[in-house]
């Protein structure tokens, strides 16, 4: 019995030794290991800048009533989306209306204290109305680069103020 026990002990020792030897041969991951991998990702990036900060209608000279004034005389705008990683739609919206003069709503013409603002990217072969209620697309699927556009300001038919009106237009670009 004692011999048997000894043999068992020897066998266990041998087994443990063999086991240790095997374990030593196993790649070190069993004792702790690490590896790395990268996740690379690039987001859609859109940038838009307009080259002019303002347009002083009629070069700052008082405008007459019921008349149209165009930027293409001297003040054509350029929207620049250079650097964008995707094609974009460029939109314009009147985000701050005049203090007294207000923009005509969609499809309407100038009236008393009401002006109309249109935009064109082809020197008035085609044009769209710029509104306060929503943004109007002036160019779809613009590849990263520049797009010129003109504005036409149609003055009110009459006015109740001689005070200068300041109208803010927001140009925005979103992925096409």
């Amino acid at each position: 019995m004692e011999k048997i026990s000894r043999k068992i002990k020897v066998l266990m020792l041998v087994a443990i030794t063999i086991g240790t030897t095997i374990l030593a041969g196993i790649p070190s991951t069993l004792a702790g290991d690490s590896d790395t991998f990268d996740i690379t990702v690039t987001g859609q990036y859109i940038t838009l800048a307009v080259d002019k900060a303002s347009w002083s209608v009629n070069s700052g000279v008082l405008v007459a009533m019921s008349r149209s004034y165009y930027t293409n005389a001297t003040d054509t705008f350029t929207a620049d989306s250079t650097g964008s990683s995707v094609n974009v739609d460029v939109k314009l919206q009147i985000t701050t209306d005049g203090a007294t003069w207000h923009a005509a709503t969609s499809g309407n013409n100038p009236a008393a204290d009401t002006y109309k603002l249109n935009a064109s990217i082809d020197t008035w072969s085609t044009q769209v109305q710029i509104l306060t209620a929503s943004a109007t697309i002036i160019k779809t699927n613009l590849a990263a680069g520049q797009q010129t556009f003109d504005l036409k300001f149609m003055s009110p038919t009459s006015t109740t103020t001689g005070t200068q009106q300041t109208i803010t237009v927001t140009a925005s670009a979103i992925a096409s």
Binding site: Q44, L62, F77, Y115, S155, G162, T166, A173
Partner: peptide
């Protein structure tokens, strides 16, 4: 990063 915008002003003064 998914859209961008810029603003500009129109200033105008009418005969009053």
């Amino acid at each position: 990063l998914a859209s961008d915008h810029d603003t500009f002003n129109l200033t105008v003064k009418g005969y009053y």
